[in-house]
């Protein structure tokens, strides 16, 4: 069931996920924006506004402020946004206790996990997003796990100082009891600057067909394939923190409901690191009693599916 509407105000609006924004500015029309806000109100949707790095006309802001919403913006442009997208090492603009998305490469993460340490001290939540998942190789497993453990130790140090910082790839799994995926195409759609709905921003920038518009509604063909129950590899998986990115799925396997090997392995390494984190925290004192993350003997659930 649809719950969220993401509105890209401009082709150059900040990218907060597995896609690259457009290089050229292309602002959404005021009429399209109005229609989308009206649609969201009538359908009872939570609105996420994704901002470009330039000032919008006043009438745009008035329309946007007509509905409760969450703002996504580049950290170097808008400090007061709810969710800030920051470049690694560009931490100076990050306000205390903010929620930050940092996109990084897999190799950079393995080689320099320490770049995140200053951020752990000041933000409420850090979402690390690997923008090049397809480059992951099985021989990177050890290095990736080491980087995760390095961050784990740093997070635990913050916990000791009563700073309960959240890091999506490590702490989310500690508290989740079921899948908490992106769910684009199932729970959310995106309104692009062309006034049309897309499954998510990546589908828009990737040249996929639109799935409706505010006047005609959302019409996703084979929409069941965006649901967890129609994802054979994922529906019994317990890497609950996984984004289960349908765009990456489509890129890697040609099917939105089937993740590639790399996405699965990365998320299971994160899951296993969360388990180690849980064990380490409990060495200090009681933590999340009753919560268990079981041992598993695979990194890719594809291997355990029985036919």
């Amino acid at each position: 069931m649809l719950k969220y509407l993401v509105i890209l105000l401009d082709d150059s609006a900040v990218s907060y996920c597995h896609y690259e924004s457009g290089k050229e500015r292309k602002l959404i029309s005021l009429e399209a924006l109005k229609s989308a806000i009206l649609f969201a109100m009538k359908e009872n949707l939570n609105v996420h506004i994704v901002w470009p790095d330039y000032e919008l006309p006043k009438d745009y802001k008035e329309i946007i402020n007509g509905i409760d919403h969450i703002n996504f913006a580049d950290a170097s442009f808008a400090h007061d946004a709810d969710i800030l997208v920051a470049n690694p090492l560009d931490w100076d603009n990050i306000p205390e206790k903010s929620v930050v998305v940092v996109k990084t490469g897999i190799r950079d993460f393995i080689e320099k996990p320490e770049v995140f340490l200053p951020l752990l001290k000041r933000v409420a939540r850090l979402n690390i997003l690997f923008e090049d998942i397809s480059v992951f190789k099985d021989e990177m497993v050890t290095g990736f796990s080491y980087a995760l453990d390095f961050l784990t130790d740093a997070i635990i140090e913050q916990y000791k100082k009563q700073n309960k910082v959240q890091v999506n790839i490590l702490t989310d799994r500690l508290i989740l009891d079921q899948m908490n995926n992106c769910n684009a195409g199932d729970e959310s759609v995106t309104l692009a600057p062309d006034g049309q709905f897309y499954v998510c921003p990546a589908f828009y920038f990737g040249g996929e067909k639109s799935v409706g518009n505010p006047n005609e509604g959302v019409h996703i063909k084979n929409s069941q394939l965006f649901r967890l129950d129609h994802a054979p590899i994922c529906r019994n998986c317990d890497a609950y923190q996984c984004n289960r990115c349908v765009w990456l799925n489509k890129q890697q396997t040609l099917e939105v409901n089937t993740p590639g090997h790399e996405q699965c392995v990365i998320c299971h390494l994160e899951r296993n690191a969360s388990k180690r984190m849980l064990d380490k925290i409990r060495e200090i004192g009681e933590f999340l009693p009753g919560k268990e993350i079981p041992d598993i003997d695979y990194l890719d659930p594809f291997e355990k599916i029985e036919k």
């Binding site: 054979p232 890697q252 040609l254 099917e255 089937t258 590639g260 090997h261 790399e262 594809f302 036919k307």
Partner: peptide, 10 residues
């Protein structure tokens, strides 16, 4: 990766 959807089809 492109074989995975075929091998997990039910």
């Amino acid at each position: 990766n492109k074989l995975r959807p075929f091998l997990t089809l039910d």
